[in-house]
Structures are given as structure tokens and as C-alpha cells.
Simulated scan of single mutants.
Amino acid sequence: MNLPGKIRTGRRLAGQLARTPSELRNVPRTVRSQGTPLDVGLPWLAFVVIDRLDEIVGPESSVFEFGGGGSTVWFAERARQVTSIEHDPEWAALLEERFAATPNVDVRHVAAAGGSYDEYVASVESFPDDSLDVVLVDGRSRVRCALAAMPKVRPGGFLVLDDSQRKYYGPAHEALAPWPHETLQGMAPYKFDFGVTTFWRRPAEGD
């Protein structure tokens, strides 16, 4: 990043912290997290989001993620089963090598053949309806991935969309409107900037 870019980033961060002073406590966590996601082992999500995931992911959880990396490392240490879908062949190869001896992680390379993400989006369809505790949408074609994943989330489970503030993710917000939700934002690992993520909880019987 050139100097003007660094100045703009610094000003934006200063404004974000001024509006959300509670996030000052997470600045040291950002400083400590500098490195590659596979080495650091943290999702590329705001720390408040990671803390929330830590509350809902446990030893019996089945997790599906569109887009692998530090999140895969993190989920692997906590969940019963993690399925990670990755479109980039080089990154997928690194993930496959990293988790080759990790029995609870299934890394699947799903290429964007001809620039189409149809197979990538459809990868979640191999799971039964109502079977996944957490679906993290943090890769490509996020609106389509979120819509495809909705019936796969168990009642009481969560669908999590990163960068949910982007206006072109509006159709996902509309489709998920009947589900209770919370949007969290704050300092994140690897970068001196805020991340924004929305959790939707699929209503369970009796809610």
C-alpha cells in the first residue's frame, strides 16, 4: 500500500475506533495476529465475531464453510466435522496438505469451470437438510451460497455472512429476513481495519 493509501486507512480506522471505543481493547489482538492465516490460525473475521463463534461452536458441531484458511484451522480445533470448500487450486492444495492428517476436516477443491461458480454453490447440496450447525459464507458468489445453504442449516443453527454490509448482498438479507439476526463489527486479525459480519439463527420449533 502506498503512502496516501496508508493515510486513508489510518483515518478510516481512527474514525471507526472513535465511534466504537470498546474496540480499542482488540487493537493489541490485531497487532499479535500479524502473519499468514494458516500460521496464526484465526478466521479473517472481527474478533467480536470470533468470540461469538466460540460461544456456538462445540465438540458436536458440524461446520460448513465457503472459503477456507485460518477459519479452517480454528474450526478444526473445536468442531466435530469441518467441510471447507475452496475454489482457488493453489490455496486448496495448501489446505489439503495442511489437513491431510486431520480426520475431522474435509477440504474440497471446487473449481470455477469457465468462470462459473455453479458447482461451487451446489457443493452444500450434498448435505441433508437440517444437518449443519454453522455455515460460514466467506468465499465466492456469496448471495447464491447463502441461499443454497439455508435449508441445510438445522433449526437453531446459524448461517454467517462475512462482509455483510456490502449492498449487493441485499438479496441474502431479504431471503433471510424471517430468521433472527445480529450484525457484529470490530477490529479483525491480519489488518488494521473493521470487519462486519451478520449471524442469522434459523428459528427452531417453539421460538
Rank of each mutant, 00 (worst) to 15 (best):
S123V: 04
P89V: 03
G58C: 12
F75V: 00
P171D: 08
S62T: 12
G157I: 03
R202Q: 06
R52P: 02
A79M: 10
E60I: 08
S131N: 06
G156T: 09
D54F: 12
Q81D: 14
A92D: 06
G10N: 02
F47D: 00
S71C: 13
S164I: 01
M187I: 04
L161W: 07
A46S: 14
Y169I: 00
D39Q: 13
L45K: 13
A204G: 10
G157C: 03
E205V: 13
A149C: 06
A79F: 11
R32S: 11
D207V: 09
A149K: 04
F194C: 04
F47I: 03
A172G: 02
G58M: 07
S62E: 12
W200I: 01
H87M: 10
V27W: 10
F47T: 01
S164A: 10
H173I: 05
Y117R: 10
P89I: 01
G15E: 14
F66Y: 15
G114E: 10
R11K: 13
D129S: 05
R25N: 02
Q185M: 11
D54V: 00
G206L: 09
T72I: 07
V160I: 14
L159M: 11
S22Y: 12
G70Y: 03
A92R: 06
F66K: 04
F199C: 09
K152P: 09
V63T: 00
Y190I: 02
D162L: 04
E174K: 14
V121D: 02
E205I: 11
R140G: 05
R201H: 09
S71K: 12
S126N: 07
R98H: 14
P155D: 01
L95Q: 12
V196A: 04
L132H: 08
G139D: 05
G15T: 08
S126Y: 10
A172D: 02
T30R: 11
K152Y: 13
E23D: 10
V82A: 03
A79K: 08
P103S: 12
R202K: 15
R202N: 04
K167S: 09
A76Y: 13
G5C: 13
P171Y: 08
L45M: 15
P203I: 00
T9H: 07
T20K: 01
R142E: 05
G5F: 15
S84R: 06
D54G: 15
G186N: 08
D133I: 11
L42G: 04
A149W: 06
M187K: 06
D138Q: 11
L53P: 05
T83W: 15
A18I: 15
F99E: 08
P171L: 09
T30G: 03
P59D: 09
W91N: 09
R166L: 12
E119L: 14
P203K: 05
A122T: 02
T198V: 07
P128D: 12
K6Q: 12
P37T: 02
V57W: 10
W179E: 00
T20M: 02
